[in-house]
Design a protein around this nucleic acid. Structure first.
Lengths: 126, 126
DNA sequence: ACTGTTAATGCAACTGAGTTGCAAATATAA
DNA sequence: TTATATTTGCAACTCAGTTGCATTAACAGT
């Protein structure tokens, strides 16, 4: 499918990713727009933006779904991935711009990968 | 906390991990024992076995929680991890016994990491 | 083996994320 | 401006996971 119409919700949601260069969780977005948009709309818009390749998603801590606008997503295929980092103190989550090479695994065919690093960001380091 | 008593449920659940060397999801275990144990019990036993270091957990596809008995878990600390593999056809999920080195990231302190590979296992490869 | 203590269990009710169907609203092409 | 097809809001629903509490069962001490 994909985004067909530039509706208010699409524009506003995309704007959130524009002004912050980090990842945003579904729940965070639902909360930010709870006065303005129904949660169903948020789920649907995020789904479509991902289908369109505008956003990509990944699982954070506790299986929570995060979205980020990532410029170089199409490059990262097969055995190269870009990892994500989630701060365990403040929760800030973002893409890391290096890639990790996955060694060939005998008798397995790897098509996707997810790499989540958890720890403390610059602000939250002791 | 941790396991204090060797109850029927603890023994039976551990046995499942003994006879299969792969990972099992919470839902799979709840289903396997639905006639025998309450789901609350399954959740609690798995929690405790993880606290005890007998099992370790990780997030699979769609944020589903998986558990596996992993012999060498304590070795894998800081910047070395062992990845997990999930087959997108049959769903079989297990630990991979190699480790991936995580490059130092400036201004971030990494304490945990999760690495999930998805693709096709030996049986499901075209 | 028996008993008392305390952890473990089952149950029912609850929470909260995510989904679905449908009627109303709105973006866009003509 | 209008027609039409997409998008939205709403309400109801599903389902994984949690909680409180009364009952059951493991096990240490005798």
């Amino acid at each position: 499918m994909g985004i067909i119409r530039k509706t208010k919700s699409v524009k506003k949601i995309l704007n959130e990713f524009q002004i912050e260069s980090k990842a945003l969780s579904t729940l965070d977005l639902i909360h930010r727009f709870e006065a303005e948009f129904n949660k169903t709309t948020i789920y649907r818009v995020l789904d479509k933006l991902e289908d369109d390749g505008v956003l990509h998603s990944f699982q954070g801590k506790n299986g929570v779904k995060w979205y980020a606008k990532c410029e170089d997503c199409t490059e990262h295929k097969h055995s190269d991935i870009h990892p994500h980092f989630q701060c365990l103190s403040c929760g800030q989550t973002d893409c890391l711009d290096f890639s990790i090479h996955i060694p060939k695994i005998p008798n397995r065919e790897v098509s996707f990968s997810q790499f989540l690093l958890q720890g403390h960001c610059e602000n939250c380091m002791a």
